[in-house]
Write a protein that binds this DNA or RNA. Sequence first.
DNA 1: GTTTTAAATAGAAACGATTTTCATTTAGAT
DNA 2: ATCTAAATGAAAATCGTTTCTATTTAAAAC
Lengths: 145, 145
Amino acid sequence: MEHDFYRILKGLKLKVTPKRIAIMEIMAAEKTYMSPDELRSKLKQRFKNIGLPTVYRNLEELAKEGVIIKIIHPDRKLYYFYCHRKEHHHHFVCVSCRRVEDITFCGMEEIKKEVEDGLKGHMVSHMLQVYGFCKNCLIKQVVSQ
Amino acid sequence: MEHDFYRILKGLKLKVTPKRIAIMEIMAAEKTYMSPDELRSKLKQRFKNIGLPTVYRNLEELAKEGVIIKIIHPDRKLYYFYCHRKEHHHHFVCVSCRRVEDITFCGMEEIKKEVEDGLKGHMVSHMLQVYGFCKNCLIKQVVSQ
DNA sequence: GTTTTAAATAGAAACGATTTTCATTTAGAT
DNA sequence: ATCTAAATGAAAATCGTTTCTATTTAAAAC
Ligand SMILES: [Zn+2]
Ligand SMILES: [Zn+2]
Ligand SMILES: [Zn+2]
Ligand SMILES: [Zn+2]
């Protein structure tokens, strides 16, 4: 698995540093989105010194390259998630446990049609995100009643 | 028109202050989204003293009550827009001039189905926003070439 | 293997949008 | 006209994020 990350970084012409590898390992192992500070807490278990700017920079670089994604959050803070799927798609985010899951529905064609035919504009991108309670959290709710 | 805003504020049990009315008037007259600071600049033309916290507070209150909407922006700053349409719908945002236009496509049913049948979760809300160039900006691009 | 150099990093400081605090003013009820 | 809770302005605080700079390090060149 580490070899995957190694190759990904090489492909992006980024230096393969222990911290980069660790960031990718930790992110890829998480089922939930994380803030830079939460990621740093996990990195602290492996490295004595790890600066927050390093975490911010690496997350941003990886997001820019499409290796990880940014999660749009109502609190307008930065959150990232390692998404294994590479085709265009969107995400379901659990408002209780932060779990992220893929959604295959998109609607890009209909939207594009409406923008171009209806508004006579040109669509550049679109953002779709779904919020709710994941399977696990629904079960917990029922059990705890 | 002012009477509309008067009645809206009354309906929300908010005091009808000159600044609240002015904020609603300015927002409702704009075809583009605005930041709190941009709104304050406009308010300064009418009021000698107008504090930024007042602008922030009022925008947030009006957004909470659904009178205006928040625009999700990649820069993660706060932007608001007075949307005249009241039914559930989404928006097209021009990345060049900030114009906001209604989109009727939604896809809520398909998404809900996928979350509930596929993921066995429960959908609470969803966020869709479309970015691109509006009609006017497309024309300007062509003309200036 | 050694040298070179550009990228990566840590730590400290800066930044800036947003929020909080608090004293004063004001809308609207009595 | 009086009262009270809401609204406001000014100043300060907050805090997530970014910048700066000296140091370290990956990896290319030798
Ligand atoms: Zn959950
Ligand atoms: Zn899509
Ligand atoms: Zn435009
Ligand atoms: Zn919708």
